[in-house]
Design a protein around this nucleic acid. Structure first.
Lengths: 354, 354
DNA sequence: CCACCTAATAAAAACGTTTTTATTTTCATT
DNA sequence: AATGAAAATAAAAACGTTTTTATTAGGTGG
């Protein structure tokens, strides 16, 4: 008795088990479970009941082999390329959380694939397509010219990108309006009287890095001031980078009077740098940040922020991917979020002495 | 011609393709590719070459169906249970990065399953086992009495936990020596002259929350001072919780003179709270933090920290899981890390006035 | 009452592997 | 030259599904 139970546990019930149990053929069982109209209602009921009783769960591998569908949504997660375990503020946890919320209730599961760089991401995307590792892909860290997008658009494989490349291709994507956000931040600081404004930015090939530079430059252009391109710092998104850029910039002959920071981790670094040099935010210098994870309110002092919860983007990514995998038109699956401005400082250096 | 190529792209090559191409049977192909000793070296060479040429990749679903192995390592990722998209400092990205480093070179891939709570995690673990969704499981957020560990230990399914439960079970795990870390931090502050020390802690059912309370209490015990249990704050790991606890604690009749913070996000919150009340770290109050992501150096002022890069834990988790899946003895797969003390403040309130 | 249609179910094939079993070939031993 | 073992390869079965095709039973129209 105990042995039977043990062996029963060892191998979970299959369609065959159900067939033996109910007396129907495996074909009928399969159709019944998929609620096919060709099988009689009474039969379905009996089969459903039996399945319930023995706790039958369809074997995903068998299904996948036969149908080619995996019911997996692949997420390409870039691994932090930052040295020494520095924080870079990339909150993939929250993105994944959002995606999983969207996939809740669907039959899809998430599989995360860690990638090291764009080449790696490209290889992985190809493998996922070729080997049918998943039915759709989500990825981020989009370059101005991103080979993954070219590849996937051409093949027609369902995907949604977090970010846009700069080619005029039609594909499902979710993004933040980085050009606008940078423009708005810069404009605000210019209106506050600043002329020398530093932009702490990611590395150039990233599409959104260029978007921000565009917005930064547009604000200066509209104000009729020359863009201080010498104050654009480009690096990884680590706290260390934020700090070191700040120390560097402030020790130049014509230092900036304000900083625009790309994300929370660089902001923390900038504040650290300012602290080291004894500069006070709001008195000696102004700082505006972008924030994905609602952290800027807790800096001392709290600073003005363009805030867009990253989890919401994740949710949209998931929703779009579901629609895309169901055959939805990518033309319809594009959304660009404008982050909310949260004013916590006047950003005008008050009665600025110099 | 173009059509042949297109159709060739449509359906990737299988063992059958190789069989037709080389003239060998599919059995021989399969054995050759797995480098079986029963097939002649010359044959192997020919088959390898052909496989290379047509870019053959074994179909994972077919393999999985036949062997029952999935070559997937499942990671259960708890979704932040925190309201309003608050940061809780749980850097799963870095854990995953570490795990993926360990799995590099092996045939295993990571699949991440998002879970909402312990019950959800339990269900998921069971599904992974029953349905053979993966060959091994990694999970964290261990409770003092954790049903997932009971379940998996009993079934013998390979797993590694990040954290230990309080039952005397034998299972592979990686952990931080939280009892020691809390003890050491508390001892340091007591030595610095503090008596009223606050502990910003996670919620009680978490095993490591209890470990820290134990260490906290032991330090007071050894110093012959009563443990200020009224200064133990328990909540989620959000920045908001850190801030609100601080505001609350400092406005009590007998406020703490020092804080021990469970992680970076709560630390930021504590510093925010101190800032709001105009208290200076190192002058009015001392703060010691635990840090997984090397961020405490950038607080203003930098604060003393027990530092253990979370990515290293992730790497060990991956290594242990590989060994466990290969049949390794869980007895041998246990490691408890002691975080490194990084002194950035004297933590003695200097020439403390009061 | 026979042919025919429909409904319900069963049988068989297929997906791409691995593994077990069977067959053929080679070669040494008697 | 016959026997048998060893080596190499082929054939077949199996994993658990879904889908296509075949079969059976039950009615209906002529």
């Amino acid at each position: 008795m105990a042995e039977t139970e043990a062996s029963a546990r060892r191998s979970p019930p299959t369609i065959k088990t159900l067939a033996d149990l109910t007396g129907y053929s495996i074909a009928t069982i399969s159709k019944a479970l998929r609620d096919s109209p060709v099988v009689a209602q009474a039969t379905k009921d009996a089969i459903f009941k039996a399945a319930q009783e023995i706790g039958y769960q369809a074997n995903a591998r068998g299904m996948a082999l036969r149908t080619g569908k995996t019911y997996q949504a692949a997420v390409l997660m870039p691994v932090t390329a930052v040295r020494d375990y520095e924080w870079d503020g990339v909150e993939y946890t929250q993105i994944l959380s959002g995606v999983s919320q969207a996939l809740e209730g669907s039959d899809y599961r998430i599989s995360v694939h860690v990638i090291r760089d764009t080449q790696d991401g490209c290889d992985m995307a190809r493998r996922i397509m070729d080997q049918g590792l998943a039915d759709g892909i989500i990825f981020s860290g989009i370059l101005a010219d991103d080979p993954r997008i070219d590849l996937l658009v051409e093949s027609g494989f369902p995907f949604v990108s977090l970010g846009r490349c700069r080619k005029p291709l039609v594909y499902a994507h979710v993004d933040i309006d980085n050009e606008w956000a940078a423009f708005a931040a810069t404009q605000r600081l210019i209106a506050g009287g600043h002329r020398r404004i530093a932009l702490i930015n990611p590395q150039r090939p990233l599409s959104y890095a260029m978007d921000r530079i565009d917005g930064f430059a547009r604000a200066f252009g509209e104000a009729g001031i020359e863009t201080p391109v010498d104050l654009i710092a480009e690096g990884d998104l680590s706290t260390r980078f934020g700090r070191e850029s700040t120390l560097d910039l402030l020790q130049r002959p014509e230092p900036p009077t304000a900083f625009i920071c790309i994300n929370e981790s660089t902001t923390l670094g900038v504040l650290s740098g300012l602290g080291s040099l004894g500069r006070q935010v709001g008195t000696d210098v102004d700082v505006i940040a972008y924030d994905d994870i609602n952290v800027s309110a807790y800096f001392t002092p709290p600073i003005t922020t363009f805030y867009q919860p990253i989890e919401v983007l994740g949710r949209t990514l998931g929703q779009f991917l579901l629609q895309r995998m169901a055959g939805g038109d990518p033309q319809m699956l594009r959304q660009v979020f404008r982050p909310a401005l949260i004013e916590r400082q006047p950003d005008n250096l008050g009665a600025r002495p110099a």
